[in-house]
Amino acid sequence: MRCPIETEEHAETLLAYCANRLDPAQAAALERHMRSCAACRSFQEAQQTVWEALDTWEAPPVPADFDRRLYQRIEAEGYTWWQRLFQPFRPVLLRQGLPLAAAACLLVMAGIIAQRPGERRPAPAPPAVRVESVQAEQVERTLDDLELLHQFTEATGVEKHSPDSM
């Protein structure tokens, strides 16, 4: 095997070896070469140190709410400008909107029913209209009753104030 350090592919071959990306035959050939080549051995050892140092650098875990926040942004992109305007109030509207909408519907329906001409209740008739409907006999009878009452009052009043009657 030609020395990788002395060829143009030296870095590629040695880097691939340190990254375990050489095929077994190539790796075995390089290992045989390194037993007798101090320069390649030194390169490989230094690169191995870098590789192991980079292995210690673990990235932090993915935040638990990453997907939720992403889907929220995707959802928000699908709205028109006025839908976006009301976006912050959506939870409140969803929670309280249904009862409010139901109440509004009831009010509207009550208004419609009250306005329907076929079912309008007759307004109470003024007293004059009632007088017109009273029969003449009823009037006569009432007047007779009043006369009798007057006579009775007079009769009882005389008896009350006359000392002879005692």
Binding site: A11, L15, E45, A46, Q47, T49, V50, E52, A53, L54
Partner: peptide
């Protein structure tokens, strides 16, 4: 890319050599 990686690892080998 090969050139970028060679230079980058060369720098890292020098900076992290004491960690061997």
């Amino acid at each position: 890319v090969k050139s970028l990686l060679f230079r980058a690892y060369e720098t890292l080998r020098a900076r992290l050599a004491h960690m061997a």
